[in-house]
């Protein structure tokens, strides 16, 4: 029996009738058309299906939609705002952090959660935060470099915001 549920995904409300045994991954992809979230192993062993649940990275392949009705779900489609890319997305693109791109949505969401919690992570902290996301193309190096670059850009932006007058000084 399908159940009618409400999901909040990327700030939008979706009413959807789901079978209780459908995972969030399946519902995002097959019912909501949010195909940016990827299927890699279906058993919680790769991280490709990572989404944020109230800002926290979890695996959508091991999440029941019925259990996350109250939560704010963020998928890769929600990382950009009105067509403006998240600095992480820019850095991943510019610095070659995405090769085949299949692990990339999950990587980006794990990285976004990290930077929100820790705006200037060390290389070791980045490795720890991404320890649940497997990448088979890059050897991870370019991913670290992109996250570090995005962190620098983000904190530069924050600096500007904190000192709005600074830019006006001669």
């Amino acid at each position: 029996m399908r159940e009618l549920i409400t999901l909040r995904v990327n700030g939008e409300r979706y009413e959807v009738a789901v079978l209780p045994h459908r995972t969030l991954l399946e519902v995002l992809r097959e019912d909501l058309g949010l195909i940016g979230t990827k299927h890699g192993c279906e058993l919680g062993e790769c991280g490709a299906c990572t989404v944020l649940l109230d800002g926290v990275p979890v695996l959508s392949c091991l999440t029941l939609p019925l259990e996350v009705q109250g939560a704010e779900i963020t998928t890769i489609e929600g990382l950009e705002e009105r067509g403006r890319l998240h600095p992480l997305q820019e850095a991943f693109a510019e610095l070659g952090a995405a090769q085949c791109g299949y692990c990339t949505p999950g990587m980006l969401l794990s990285a976004a959660a990290l930077l929100r919690q820790n705006p200037r992570p060390t290389r070791e902290e980045i490795k720890q935060a991404l320890a649940g996301n497997l990448c088979r193309c890059t050897g991870y190096t370019k991913i670290y470099e992109a996250i570090e670059a995005a962190a620098r850009r983000l904190s530069a932006v924050h600096e500007d915001e904190r000192q709005p007058d600074a830019a006006l000084q001669p």
Binding site: G44, G47, T50, L53, V56, P57, V58, L59, L62, T63, S110, Q128, A129, A131, G132, N133
Partner: peptide, 9 residues
């Protein structure tokens, strides 16, 4: 235990 994502859930 496992990975950050699994520890979060």
């Amino acid at each position: 235990v496992s990975t950050p994502q699994l520890r979060n859930a």
